[in-house]
Design a protein around this nucleic acid. Structure first.
Lengths: 178, 178
DNA sequence: CTAGTTATGCACTGATCGATCAAGAAAGGA
DNA sequence: TCCTTTCTTGATCGATCAGTGCATAACTAG
């Protein structure tokens, strides 16, 4: 997973993979079928692990808007090395675009789950007055997801810790009611 | 340029390139040195061509906020095929991250130029009362750029025309003063 | 212990990778 | 015109690519 995450699908050789996993060549093919299947499994694992963390931060905060902020801030790893790896899902979109139906479905599934919970949470925030009531929760949820992707892309591009945190705060503040 | 744009650096073979350009193999190496140099030149050309369009839209509008909107809307091609190619610069960030100093500098240069003009324009908007005066133009400019990247990534991922336009409008409206 | 299944190591496949060679064709300059 | 430089063509380089065949090793069930 880390090998694909760092270098992308095409630039990661099967040699890289067996080195990273510390197993033999035949074991890789026996266990995963081929390079592509391994990539899909790695991406699935990545999505599963990260999504649960995202939802935990979104739900755990004391208020909906604080949840959004925690979600965005939580994307930004303090460690430079980890942060510049970005998000494997975002990287996958960049590499494959909309061309691969299987990856697209995988991505859509995760996106919808986050979107749903995000919209619920935003709706709560509108009810308690902390979030601007003039927009629809669904649109705002889409926009938060766009912001998530933007932050993670900027992180991969070498964006600094403080710079990214300011952007997360800025985006969060844009949802606040006046 | 289109070949690299569509498939990324690693997945584009020199055979793809000579097919796309309609020239012989040796001509490619004679004219560009190697694959990497050709990629850098292609990316430079892409940046130059697109950036001028972005600035034109940002400057051409009747008001600063309308300029921001035109800038964001202008990223979204009506043609599905073109839209799903996304932005070559964004794709490049995804593929190479912060690992390549030359690409990073190329990207930074363009980013700063847009950022500067964006901040100026936002400042104008705050002066004429159309844009929320409570934030600093620089931060807002960074955020617009993050939104640009987010839109273009979503486009590559298969985002629909109307969906993306709604996000552009939503982001623009977040800057409006109340 | 044995039989049968599963996993692994090593050598190797054809294909394709990026890049180069040698030689000729075209273009440019005096 | 002749000579030099620039460009193009086709064959080919060694390296690496993803994926296999085959024999051995490890494990499991009885």
């Amino acid at each position: 997973m880390k090998a694909f995450w760092a270098k992308g699908y095409a630039a990661t050789s099967t040699e890289d993979l067996i080195q990273a996993m510390g197993i033999g060549r035949q074991s890789l093919y026996h266990a995963f079928g081929d390079k592509r299947r391994l990539y899909v499994e790695a991406l699935e694992t990545y999505q599963r692990e990260t999504t649960s963390g995202h939802l935990k931060r979104l739900n755990g905060a004391i208020s909906p808007l604080a949840g959004v902020r925690d979600l965005l801030i939580g994307l930004i790893d303090e460690d430079d090395r980890l942060r510049t790896m970005g998000c494997m899902g975002v990287n996958s979109v960049g590499e494959f675009g909309a061309s691969d139906p299987e990856l697209r479905e995988l991505r859509t599934k995760v996106g919808m789950a986050i979107n749903k919970r995000l919209a619920e949470r935003l709706s709560e925030g509108q009810a308690n007055g902390e979030i601007d009531p003039t927009f629809t929760p669904g649109e705002a949820a889409n926009f938060i997801q766009l912001t998530m992707a933007g932050i993670q892309l900027a992180a991969r591009g070498g964006g600094g810790l403080e710079e990214l945190r300011r952007m997360a705060d800025f985006a969060t503040d844009r949802l606040r009611s006046h």
